[in-house]
Every structure is written in structure tokens, then in C-alpha cells.
Amino acid sequence: MMNKRLPARHARLLALASVFVTLLAAPADAQLPNAQIGEAVPRDVREVYQKGLDYLLSIQKEDGSFGSGTYGGAGVSGMGVMVFLASGEDPNFGRYSGAIRKAVRFIVRNQDKTTGILGGRTSHTSMYNHGFAMLALSEVYGAIDERTLWRESGDVPADERRSVGQALELAVRASITSQKKNKHGGWRYGPDATDADTSVSGAVLVGLLAARNAGIEVPDEAIDRAITYFQSMTSDSGQVAYSGVGGFGVSVPRQSIACLVYALARRKDVKQFNATLGALTSDLGSASSGSYLEYGRYYEAQALFHGDVESWKKWNERLVRELKSTQKANGSFQASNGPEVGTCLNLLGLALNYRFLPIYER
């Protein structure tokens, strides 16, 4: 299923490496490569992020996972992988490379080798896990050295030692198989569900769009069906419904998810994109308002960045202040879904300041 776009991804990574080499010989006031639309990463952002990275490193389990119970599994481990990658950490070298590789191995080992579902299919969060884990594999694909990925894996059975590319192709296939069973063209908690909601559908669709960006073949039909579903769930005023049983309502997380998928799917020309973006920018409010706080921050940061950079800058300034004041001494953030998830989501909300992840490219 891999297509010919992969070499371009490799070229981008090599180009980034060459920029770093150039900077080593450049004057001290040379602009950093992550300053793509403005000044370099502010000190407050770097300090908050560094403390968060060290916290995640300290709580990572021996099997490579982050979190536990309901708020654990492949999805949270995928978030952890993205947090490290988002600030430019290398999966092959450096202080955090071992943690990244361990988490990637955990995600791959917990993929159903028959169905391709990442993180199991029995939990009510299975497709959330699948979507976030697929996104993480998409972001690390092409950056990690596959030749050394399993070198530290001990006695892991051979049938669990898939490459990232193989695991990602299986995950994409599983997503499409699940969507074909769904009358709405979206996704719900389980892979065999026939109903859909915009939250789970957003997690899976973003993963598919990232996989396509990484060079994995994703049928246009699958993207079109999912976007059509989101359009049907978006009102003219930019409100986004949750599922078939609920009506439209003001929800920053849902509005942000819809706005983001329209942007990533290159559908900024549809009226629903402008409606959701308008709803977000007309009242930016506080970066810490609403329910599902950290989850909302994660998506709103990306939606504003892809839709209206000036609005994102204003929103981001408040977010930095709030996170700096609420971060615990150990680098974590307290959240209703646990400090591991809360820390990952808050840091990923900050990660647009770095803009290393391919999914963050405008």
C-alpha cells in the first residue's frame, strides 16, 4: 500500500538535518528552523515542555507504555511518542531516543495481527486507541531507523516484530474495513460499530490523513465519506453535533475537530470549514475554558493554527501562561483523565510552537 510519496518525506527529514548543520556554523543570533512563521520558541514554552518530557520519561513503564487502565494503552503511548517527536527529539539518537523506540515497539506489539486494530478491539476506547496510535506511527514513519527498532527487544516473538510501515499499512486497512461497516461513513468506539460520533471519527480520520501524508495509500473514497459525515454534523453557524442521537451544540472540542479535519483534508473551500473556524475565532475566550479541557486544547491549537495563525498566536499566549501556572513540580498536569493523558495533551497543545511534526505543516 505504500506509494511514491515516501521519498519526499525522507528528503524533508534530510533537509531538516542539513538546516541544523548549517546552524552550527551560523552566528549565534541565527533563526531556528522551527520559527517558520515568527520568532523562535519562547523560553517559557521550552521550560514547560522540558519539564513535561522529563515527567513522561520518569513514568514510562518497562514495556514502553504510558498510563494505565482506561487511560492507558496504545493511544496514550501514541500521544507520548508524539510529545517527544513534536519538540524535535530524534527517535534514533539522544536522551529520549530509547523512550521513543520502546513506546513504538509497545504500539506495534499491541496490534491485532489479524485485524490490524491497534490496542485491542474490546474496550469502549478501542477506536480512540487505534486513531491516536495510527497517528503516532504515521509521524514516526520515515524518521525511525527500522534496522535498530527491535534490537533491544529481547525475546519478542518474530510475528510481533513488524516494521512501522507494515504496522501502519495494517492500521489503515483496519480503519477502512471498520468504516465500510458504518452506515454514516465515520467511526464509533468499536471497530464493528454501525453508528458514529464526531469525536472518535476525528481521532481515526486525523490518523488516516497523517498516514496519507506519510506516503501510505489511503483511498480517496474513505476520506470523502468521512468528510461528508462531518459536513452533515456541522450547522451553518459552526456548531457540531456529537452523534446521531444528539443535536447541534456549542462544543469547542467538536468544533475544533471538525475545523481541523476540513483543513487537513484540504477542504478549506467548503462552507463548513469557514463556519467552524468562525465559531472558534469569534470568541476565543480563555484557553482553559469548557469541558474536556485538555482534549479541547489539543484540537483547538491545531484548528486555529491551520485556519487563522493570528488568532492562534493570541490563543497560544494565554495557553502558555496558564500551563506555566498550573504545571506541577514534577512536570505533570492534573486532569480528569489522569496526569499521563493530561500532560500529553497539554504538551501537544504547546507543540505548535515547535512545528516539527509533519501533521502540523500548514
Rank of each mutant, 00 (worst) to 15 (best):
R5Y: 13
L6P: 04
P7C: 06
A8L: 14
A8E: 13
H10V: 14
R12L: 14
L13D: 13
L14H: 12
L14W: 08
V19I: 15
D29M: 07
A30I: 12
P33V: 09
V41H: 00
P42T: 05
V45S: 09
V45E: 08
E47N: 09
L53Q: 02
Q60H: 03
D63V: 00
D63S: 07
D63G: 04
G64Y: 05
S68A: 15
T70F: 15
G73A: 10
G80S: 10
M82I: 09
V83Q: 03
V83F: 04
L85N: 04
L85M: 13
A86S: 15
A86W: 00
N92Q: 12
G94H: 08
R95Y: 13
K102R: 15
I107C: 01
V108W: 02
K113M: 11
K113H: 12
T114P: 00
T114C: 09
S123C: 09
H130K: 04
L135Q: 02
S138C: 07
V140Q: 03
Y141F: 11
E146D: 10
E152Q: 12
G154P: 02
D155H: 15
V156W: 02
P157F: 06
R162W: 15
S163P: 02
A167G: 12
A171M: 04
I176D: 06
S178C: 02
K180Q: 14
K180S: 11
N182A: 02
Y189G: 10
D192K: 14
V204S: 03
L209N: 01
A210W: 01
R212C: 00
R212W: 03
I216T: 06
E217G: 00
Y229A: 14
M233H: 07
D236L: 15
S243V: 06
S243A: 11
G244W: 13
F248K: 01
V252K: 12
S256C: 10
I257P: 05
L260T: 10
R267V: 07
V270M: 09
Q272Y: 10
N274I: 05
T281C: 07
S282A: 11
L284R: 05
G285Y: 06
S286A: 15
L293T: 11
G296N: 00
G296P: 04
R297D: 01
A301D: 07
A303H: 01
D308F: 00
K313P: 08
R321S: 14
R321W: 12
L323T: 05
K324V: 11
Q327W: 06
N330F: 02
N330R: 07
Q334D: 15
G338A: 00
P339W: 03
E340A: 13
E340C: 11
G342T: 00
L345G: 06
L347S: 02
A351I: 09
R355D: 15
R355I: 13
P358D: 09
